[in-house]
Nucleic acid binder design. Structure first.
Lengths: 211, 211
DNA sequence: GTTATTGTATCGTCTGGTCAGTATAAAAGC
DNA sequence: GCTTTTATACTGACCAGACGATACAATAAC
């Protein structure tokens, strides 16, 4: 009758393992390999179990998307809360959440976008939460930025880098990538000249030119 | 033995129609709907014909990718050839090819990324030409830019905007989008201050602030 | 006559989804 | 404290349909 704590925990554990498995499969074998059979196998449970947790495939991809959105929101909020400089805090949080914090840059990097890929292929309508999140963040970014257009450009660059690497469409030299992140971060502090960054956090591939 | 010109033309026409059909299907119904049956139906030919042109599914997606790469290269070269200002020509061509020229912005906008989506889902290895193209363009962009880091940021922003809209992950207000493109374009001419654009090509949602 | 195309029939496999049933642990009865 | 009951997580076999691919005889276009 009443759900016991231990069963509840087991349920949650299995569910998590299924979602992890789904991400892993998409990242490793591509979206077409995302079948209940394989997810179950990867998670070490029976196929029936996978379908017990997720009624249909749409439910699975939907859950993947929800977890993705949650994670990014958490990473973003974490960045906001540890930033003492109010100016450009939102866009800076966006940079850091995407390119510095776990789990978006670490070992799970490849996994993260599995959710988006899965939804993109199986049920594009389920991308809605991602779209809403995008609008939400954009609003925050524009609001606390001194220059909304510049802040938006920063956001787009962050996205572009992330998409390119995440979907394996482009790879940038690590040094260049670091220089880009530094430059973008500098801008959020009001260092307005893109050609001559003043206080890079790391080392910049500086060629202090000007015209 | 010798292939007549007209048969060759017919062959090419059918092939083109098949590729168009494939893109259309991915854009309209999603990658999962990309089957030989449907491609043939959409192209108005028999299924056997589709398989006559493309031995297997991988061959189809591969051909889609090749056409995508070709098109973007052409658009890029077109932009380069009509640009009289040498400074920052490559990155400017990248901006324009992606966000101003056909077929990347017009009626076929949704179709274009069908190729990438299809490859992403069916055979990620076949994305190789796209990766190579990315590296090639990046090299050109860095070479003719006064500030490679800034040029790279511009490229990433262009990518980010394109991906976001193309995959339906984010939608920006048209005015903001125009302002972004203008600002980025201004930078390519050496207008180095991101906060105070001097000569926008179109109208900017100017809030001429500064700090 | 050569090549592109059609149409259909067929194959083996995989897929999402159903279902009847099992295992397990908490709860209730006594 | 022991058994009985109940709720629930989980299983594995199964189905109908769709898929990629093959084969091939007939036809159309050039």
């Amino acid at each position: 009758m009443i759900k016991s704590k231990s069963t509840d925990k087991r349920l949650h554990r299995t569910r998590t393992r299924l979602l992890d498995a789904a991400e892993e499969i998409v990242a490793r074998d591509g979206v077409l390999a995302l079948t209940f059979d394989r997810v179950a196998e990867q998670a070490g449970v029976a196929k029936g179990t996978a379908l017990y947790h997720f009624d249909c495939k749409e439910a699975l991809t939907s859950a993947m998307i929800e977890r993705f959105v949650e994670r990014f929101d958490t990473a973003w909020a974490d960045q906001i809360s540890t930033d003492t400089e109010p100016r450009g805090r939102a866009i800076r949080a966006y940079i850091n959440a995407t390119h510095r914090g776990e789990p978006f840059t670490g070992r799970h990097f490849d996994h993260v976008n599995g959710a988006i890929t899965a939804a993109l292929a199986n049920s594009p309508e389920r991308l809605r939460p991602v779209q809403d999140q995008g609008v939400r963040h954009q609003k925050a970014i524009e609001q606390d930025a001194a220059d909304p257009v510049l802040a938006t450009i920063i956001r787009m660059a962050v996205d572009g880098l992330w998409f390119a690497e995440s979907f394996n469409l482009m790879r940038y030299a690590p040094a260049l990538k670091a220089a880009v992140i530094d430059r973008l971060t500098g801008w959020t502090f009001g260092n307005a000249d893109p050609a001559t960054p003043s206080k890079p956090a790391t080392k910049t591939t500086s060629n202090g030119r000007s015209e």
